[in-house]
Design a protein around this nucleic acid. Structure first.
Length: 575
DNA sequence: GCCGTTTTCGGCCCGACTGTTTTCAGTCG
């Protein structure tokens, strides 16, 4: 699947075309096409072969030809031509806050500035402020930004770090300041795997008091801004938190606006225009009369636009708007649908709690079961267990199950997919377990064909049912290993394999796009497991459900929404 | 460059902020 590659190429084309001063709407079209392909779940090369590219909305004749050219020759002639006019180093300059395509172009044309170093030199020599439209202030800001860009590097925080922090702040604001309504918006509300900053929206009759308290919270490291309607702080973790106070009559519109995504909002405003309405963060207005027709409630905005309400997690303009127009938004899976955690560890391997402690904690979360899936022997660093140890474990589990009945501990195992695709134990021994999970823990640097081949061999091993953390990525830490997910899904379909959404917030693997692909294009089933190594980590289930919701999944696609009896039948292959 | 329940031509989201400006361009989200 070469979608990512093609979409990156189109983004690059858009960036360079912008620097070259091409028609802004052409650039918009390139960016739009890139984004669509990025989120596409079918391989772009298949569509190209079947000559079906232009059937995708947003891809016309021109871009289709460019994609075809790229897939065949590895280059796009238009892009190569632009590169001759625009030095690629200008793209780096464009990333400096305050410098966009227009200013970069002017700097290049008038002062022949091509690199950040040259830019710094020019700023220090005060030659930038001599240009029309450039002033001393801008020159100063450019210098400041150049110094900042080196340590900033667009940091995004993990959902699992930002979410608890946001909840804590909301709790404090409710408790200690006169807020009426309060909602967390932005990518956090959409449960995106990483978060740029935290946006909190409130209504209040005494906004100064809310702001005073907000900037004085103990977790505040520094204050960026403090005003009547907006304040902004940085916490000790380095996360920026923005707080906005809005009028109650605009609250719904503001929530909608600040939840995004940007692309989703753009589509909504386009729909509004067609209905002779204007949508902004203050409300929905009739264009002719200027009269406000909505804004207090978010649901009402969707309703007036002729749309079914769209859950925040779906708001990425990946087809959810079309679905809402047909009133076909599915009933997404909820945390309360989860009946058990499918992937936890105990102190038999590298977990820190006993099986019984894990079981009791799971019970307190309202679960009916857990699958204890300790590491098998090949993973020495995690105290992987021999078959003999698993037999001892089985005895203990039987004892615990008597105690915690009707709650049930299933005995699973997390097998290692070894470099040749075999696993820790022989095939005949796998039936010993209630369920066998398998994952890659070593040999992650192999070539794509090799990794894909070994996973396929494992999926074809009788007894192995679940493929855990299928792409191996650690967010902000390690890239996915090279694996042909399409081939693996295809093979999974033949073997009725289950794929994991690993709910550990450093992994969230499968991610939203892959999960959606697995379920909607291959009919695969998903298991959500926290991979918890201690009782508390079982709370991360919430993030896994977030990924599932972003993938549009209903509870029917997720096997650990089943009750015990149904799951037992399913694991026996009866369902 | 894309698109069409008024359109195959003429549109293409919206507002805030900043800095440079006496009415606006550029950038950003």
């Amino acid at each position: 699947m070469r979608n990512k590659e093609v979409s990156d190429k189109l983004y690059e084309l858009a960036e360079i075309a912008e620097m070259a001063g091409e028609n802004p709407f052409k650039i918009k079209a390139y960016n739009e096409a890139a984004r669509i392909i990025e989120n596409l779940t079918i391989p772009i090369e298949d569509l190209t072969k079947k000559d079906k590219l232009t059937e995708i909305k947003g891809i016309g004749k021109g871009i289709a030809e460019k994609i075809q050219e790229y897939l065949e020759k590895g280059t796009i002639s238009k892009l190569e031509e632009l590169k001759k006019i625009v030095p690629e180093t200008l793209l780096e300059m464009g990333k400096i806050p305050g410098l966009g395509a227009k200013r970069v172009k002017t700097l290049y044309e008038k002062l022949n500035i091509k690199t950040i170093d040259e830019l710094k030199g020019a700023a220090l020599a005060h030659s930038i402020s001599t240009l029309d439209g450039f002033g001393e202030k801008l020159e100063e800001n450019i210098l400041k930004s150049i110094n900042e860009i080196r340590d900033k590097r667009n940091v995004r925080f993990l959902l699992g770090i930002a979410y608890p922090l946001a909840s804590e702040i909301v709790g404090k604001l409710k408790e200690n300041s006169p807020v009426d309504k309060i909602t967390v918006c932005g990518s956090l509300r959409r449960m995106k795997e990483t978060i740029g900053d935290i946006d909190i929206l409130v209504t209040s009759k005494k906004s100064e008091k809310v702001m005073d308290y907000f900037v004085s919270m103990p977790l505040v490291k520094s204050i960026n801004a403090k005003g009547d309607t907006k304040s902004s702080i940085i916490t000790f973790e380095g996360i920026q938190v923005d707080l906005r106070v809005v009028e109650p009559s605009s609250y719904g519109a503001a929530i909608q606006y600040f939840t995004g995504s940007k692309e989703h909002n753009v589509r909504l405003r386009e729909i509004a225009i067609k209905k002779n309405l204007k949508l902004n963060e203050y409300g929905l207005f009739d264009i002719d009369s200027g009269r406000k027709v909505g804004g207090e409630k978010e649901e009402r905005i969707y309703e007036i636009l002729g749309l079914q309400f769209i859950p925040p997690e779906m708001r990425e303009d990946r087809g959810e708007i079309e679905l809402a127009q047909r009133y076909e938004i599915p009933e997404l899976i909820k945390i309360s649908d989860i009946k058990g955690d499918f992937h936890v560890h105990s102190n038999y391997s590298d977990g820190s709690n006993t099986i019984e402690e894990m079981a009791l904690y799971a019970k307190s979360l309202g679960y009916e079961y857990i699958v204890v899936s300790d590491h098998a022997k090949a993973l020495g660093v995690a105290h992987g267990l021999s078959l003999e140890r698993f037999k001892e474990q089985k005895k203990e589990i039987e004892q615990i199950n008597k105690k915690v009945h009707p709650f049930k501990v299933f005995q699973g195992v997390e097998l290692n997919i070894l470099s040749d695709g075999s696993v820790d134990f022989e095939d005949k021994d796998l039936s010993f377990f209630d369920v066998c999970l398998a994952g890659i823990h070593t040999g992650m640097n192999q070539e794509e064909s090799q990794i894909t081949k070994r996973v396929i061999r494992t999926l074809n091993t009788k007894g192995v049912r679940v493929f855990v953390h299928p792409t191996g990525r650690i967010i902000n830490g390690r890239d996915e290993y090279k694996i042909d997910v399409e081939k693996v899904f295809e093979e999974g379909k033949k073997n009725k394999s289950v794929f994991e959404i690993n709910a550990s917030f450093e992994r969230l693997d499968l991610n939203d796009v892959n999960s959606k692909n697995a379920v909607f294009n291959y009919g695969l089933k998903i298991e959500i497991g926290t991979d918890a190594h201690s009782t508390n980590s079982m709370e991360n289930m919430f993030y896994g459900v977030g990924v599932a919701r972003r993938a549009w999944l209903t509870k029917e696609s997720v096997i650990n929404t089943m009750r015990i009896k149904a799951l037992e039948s399913y694991l026996r292959g009866e369902l």
